[in-house]
């Protein structure tokens, strides 16, 4: 009996030690994180300079409607008469008829600016993130169309399921305070 009592107190003693240690380690770790300037939340974003417009973004997001949309760096755009992002490379004649448009949802709106320039705007609500247009623009145009995760839609999964399949490993964690990796004229020129 006495031995049992003794054992119990010894166990209790060890337990107290473990608990105190745990408390110290936990508060130390949380304190260090709170004080650290690097401990900012991160979100996922596509590095447009790595993305190869493979099209997996449209179907790999955990949401049925992908959060990835096409964006337009207007300052990089050539305002071409016939946009290689909007129109199929294998088109019949150089018209903007529906059968020549490659966007599956007709999300790219073309409007006249001034001779001979046309403006192309993406309707985000229609875009499904298939990257057909940015692929065309990268291949034959200025590369001003590019794919981004839209943060009003993204759930910020701990593991982005597109990042897992992206063949170019283009999806990276970025600080939540700077959640977009936009293409810019300056970067492209330099």
């Amino acid at each position: 009996m006495a031995a049992a009592e003794n054992k119990k107190t010894r166990r209790e003693f060890i337990a107290d030690g473990i608990r105190t240690g745990g408390l110290i380690i936990a508060s130390g770790a949380i304190g260090a994180l709170a004080a650290s300037s690097h401990a900012e939340d991160t979100v996922w974003q596509i590095d447009p300079y790595k993305c190869t417009n493979c099209g997996l973004c449209a179907t790999s997001c955990v949401l049925d409607q992908s959060t990835v949309k096409c964006m337009h760096a207007f300052a990089m755009c050539g305002y071409c008469n016939l946009c290689s992002g909007m129109l199929r490379p294998e088109r019949v004649g150089n018209t903007i008829e529906a059968e020549n448009v490659q966007c599956p949802t007709f999300a790219i709106q073309r409007s006249y600016v001034e001779n001979p320039y046309f403006q192309y705007v993406i309707d985000e609500n229609l875009c499904i993130g298939c990257a057909k247009c940015s692929k065309g623009c990268d291949a034959f145009g200025n590369g001003s169309l590019f794919m981004q995760i839209r943060h009003d839609r993204c759930l910020n999964c701990n593991q982005c399921s597109i990042a897992e399949v992206c063949p170019a490993q283009a999806i990276v964690r970025v600080p939540a305070g700077k959640p977009y990796l936009l293409k810019s004229k300056i970067k492209q020129d330099g």
Binding site: D41, V43, M71, H72, F74, A75, M76, C77, G78, Y79, C80, V113, E114, Y117, Q119, V121, F140, G141, N142, G143, Q148, R150, H151, D152, C154, N156, A176, P179, Y180, L182, K185, Q188, D189
Partner: peptide, 29 residues
């Protein structure tokens, strides 16, 4: 890098403004 140099517009055309919504505020976390 660029095949079709971006035009110099003469009619005072302005680039459309794109709004990039921020992620959920840190307040949430």
């Amino acid at each position: 890098p660029q095949k079709n140099p971006p035009p110099d517009f003469t009619t005072g055309y302005q680039y459309p403004v794109t709004i990039n919504p921020p992620p959920r505020a840190e307040l949430f976390t």
